[in-house]
Write a protein that binds this DNA or RNA. Structure first.
Lengths: 94, 94
DNA sequence: CTAGTATATAACAATATAATTATATACTAA
DNA sequence: TTAGTATATAATTATATTGTTATATACTAG
């Protein structure tokens, strides 16, 4: 895939409110699937599906720890950087 | 809309290869619809539709200049910043 | 082994997005 | 006015994404 398509695909993966929320939560540290599920109040299956899209785009990765799987941001700095660009607007004095 | 949804929507708008390409082209300066159309080799109608999505998300804006409409990035720094985060990876020495 | 827990996947229905085609609108020039 | 150019919109079809439900897999504990 071209870099343009890769980048578009990365944006697309973050372009869903649930997946963006997951990325935000993972900025706090790694979480297992059921933690994500409970924090966002979505079904187990849907949580797993969204995580799998994030993983396919290299945004998260996971390690199994016994019976559970812990997901974490692969490059937290990227997510932080993107959100800084879009959301950390400097407020001017009123 | 919440900030999370706004941000997700912004990512989603950029999450299509054609729209991301349009944003890249507009980094070079404003372009009219037919210029975008020719540069990307897509139909006039489709060009207009993609531009309208970018506009709805505050990524571009346009001004009419007589018979043509010129589109430009509303906040070029944001696009540049996002692409810098994702694509300007520093290459390590081999 | 069995039962229980955690997660993933498959199948489906609902919805959204995308691209094409046809048509409408807005402007310019004569 | 009319004809021509530039762009937008509507209608349609094709495709993709989403969420749910049911089921499968992988592991742990006993």
């Amino acid at each position: 895939m071209s870099q343009n398509e890769d980048t578009a695909s990365y944006f697309k993966a973050l372009g869903h409110p649930v997946r963006l929320q997951i990325a935000r939560k993972l900025m706090e540290g790694e979480k297992c699937v059921s933690e994500v599920e409970n924090m966002l109040s979505i079904s187990q299956a849907n949580t797993s599906q969204h995580l799998s899209i994030l993983k396919a785009n290299g945004i998260v990765d996971c390690i199994r720890k016994g019976n559970i799987k812990c997901y974490f941001l692969k490059e937290p700095g990227k997510i932080q950087g993107l959100l800084a660009v879009l959301e950390n607007t400097i407020q001017e004095k009123g």
